[in-house]
């Protein structure tokens, strides 16, 4: 199974945050890539398969308020701690931008059929394309 890229996972987590699991624990969710990167560095040897469930446990159980984006962020393999930090920063800034744009769109009054989720998904699509170069940094 081809692994998902960190960038795709971050943008999916942003989508889940913006569309469903709301804002309460953005800071906590942003820690997840760092936790996943640290867990991957652990010298587990043949027990490496334990990394995924342990990360899932760490990221899911304490907050229990934003598990969906946290779990999505726990899936990819982060190459290094700086890469994980970049993913965390990208997550926070993308949610911030999506919120700002969502407000702007609502203020300007989109057509009724595009209000809410469709407009948010379009904003996310544009952010995905716009921030794609960050994935190459």
């Amino acid at each position: 199974m081809m692994p998902i890229s960190a960038y795709d996972a971050v943008m999916l987590a942003v989508a889940v945050t913006v569309l469903g699991d709301r804002r309460g624990r953005i800071g906590w969710v942003a820690v997840v890539p760092l936790v996943a990167a640290l867990a991957a560095l652990a010298p587990l040897g043949e027990h490496g398969y334990l990394v995924a469930p342990v990360v899932a446990l760490v990221v899911t159980l304490p907050p229990l308020r934003a598990p969906a984006p946290a779990l999505v962020l726990a899936v990819p393999t982060y190459g290094s701690l700086p890469a994980a930090a970049l993913a965390a920063a990208l997550y926070v800034s993308s949610v911030w931008l999506a919120d700002l744009l969502d407000r702007r769109v609502e203020e300007r009054g989109p057509p009724p059929s595009w209000r809410g989720a469709p407009a948010r998904l379009l904003v996310l699509a544009v952010l995905y394309a716009t921030l794609l170069p960050v994935g190459h940094l």
Binding site: R108, P110, P111, W114, A119, L122
Partner: peptide
């Protein structure tokens, strides 16, 4: 179009 047209 999805945003409401010109200016939006």
């Amino acid at each position: 179009a999805p945003w409401g047209g010109l200016g939006k």
